[in-house]
Simulated assay, not measured.
Amino acid sequence: MTETRRLSPPERYAFGPSVRPLLVPKHDPCGLVRQDGFWLAMRTPEGPATLHLARSAGDLVATGHGPGARWAVDRADAVAGLRDDVSGLPALAARHPLVARLAKTFSGVRLPATGRVFPRLMRAILEQKVTGKEAHRSYRAVCRHFGEPAPGPVELVLPPDPAAVAATPYWVFHPFGVEQRRTQALLRAAQVADRLEACADAAELTARMTALPGIGPWTAAETVRLSHGDPDAVSVGDFHIPNTVAYALAGEVRGTDERMLELLEPFRGHRGRVCDLLALGGISAPKFGPRMPLRSFSRF
């Protein structure tokens, strides 16, 4: 089954930077960006699907493949970030010259919202307290292990089925570099995935996720930012972001979560977006001391 829909992006819309956060860097078994556009494998309420987004004469053409094609195409504008409301951002951004400049420079970048919780939550859990390289290596291994071929003309796998993950013992994840603590959090999330997917909005989802052992505000924010396109979700507990915010907005080389939230308060409603703008601008606090080492839990 194939469905097609034509979308009209706003002026200066930045296609690549808007959709690229949906994929793990370098290689994602469930999606890819290449010359012919953006591809994303999805488990939809109507069945598996692969969504393709491509530029065409200033528009975006969304094509869905598979049993869930209609659902994917109906959701395509959100996946592309076209439902992202930035109308209130300029007034808030004007409260700090750096934020105002970044908001103008990256005015075409939009927040995507897939409408699917578990794939993003799984990735966020795997990214807890480890380096990005370690987390992404584990993510690829987990996706390949549970991989089912996605419909469509490109070789992708569907995101892991929560029921299959929930039925898998801990020791299966150990060779993927995932220790027991993160595995247990992932299994708990998989067991209640249907209830999480049914949440009405980001606030309800955040409350349900953070009620689960092993899922805190950082993991919840990393999830709702892209599952629901929440521009206010702040990743409290992040290793780098408090320092970046303190340095960028107050000239302080180190910051705490409390200081970060204090400095972001004038931008409430778009606090998470401000953090994203700082990252897009390549802004970071000075680094001191050794970096966190790369580890392999599969060898422990």
Rank of each mutant, 00 (worst) to 15 (best):
E11D: 15
S18L: 10
R20P: 00
L22Y: 06
P25F: 09
H27Y: 14
C30H: 07
G31S: 10
V33S: 06
V33A: 07
M42A: 09
M42D: 01
E46F: 01
G47R: 01
R55F: 03
A57R: 15
G58S: 10
H65V: 03
G66R: 04
P67N: 01
W71Y: 11
V73I: 11
D74R: 14
R75Y: 07
A80R: 01
L82K: 02
A91E: 15
A91I: 01
L92H: 11
A94K: 12
R95A: 11
L102E: 00
K104W: 08
F106E: 01
V109R: 12
V109H: 11
P112H: 11
A113E: 12
T114E: 08
G115F: 07
R116H: 08
F118G: 04
L121I: 11
M122S: 13
A124M: 10
Q128A: 08
K133H: 15
K133R: 15
E134S: 14
A141Q: 12
C143P: 07
F146A: 05
F146P: 06
E148G: 02
E148N: 01
G152F: 13
P153W: 13
E155Q: 15
V157K: 04
T168P: 06
V172A: 11
F173I: 12
H174E: 14
F176V: 12
V178Y: 03
Q180C: 00
R181M: 11
L186S: 03
A189H: 04
A189S: 13
A190E: 13
A190P: 12
A193C: 09
R195M: 01
E197N: 11
E197Q: 13
C199T: 11
A200G: 05
A202L: 04
A203L: 09
L212T: 09
P213Y: 00
G214C: 10
G214P: 09
G216F: 05
W218M: 05
V224L: 00
R225Q: 11
L226F: 14
G229W: 07
P231C: 09
D232A: 06
D238Q: 09
I241F: 05
I241W: 02
A246C: 10
Y247S: 09
Y247V: 04
T256K: 03
L261C: 10
L263T: 09
L264C: 05
L264R: 03
P266V: 07
F267G: 05
F267W: 05
F267E: 06
G269Q: 05
G272V: 10
R273N: 13
D276T: 08
L280V: 03
G281N: 04
S284N: 05
P286V: 09
K287R: 13
G289L: 00
P290Q: 08
P290R: 13
R291T: 08
P293Q: 06
L294I: 08
L294H: 08
L294K: 02
R295M: 14
R299K: 08
R299N: 03
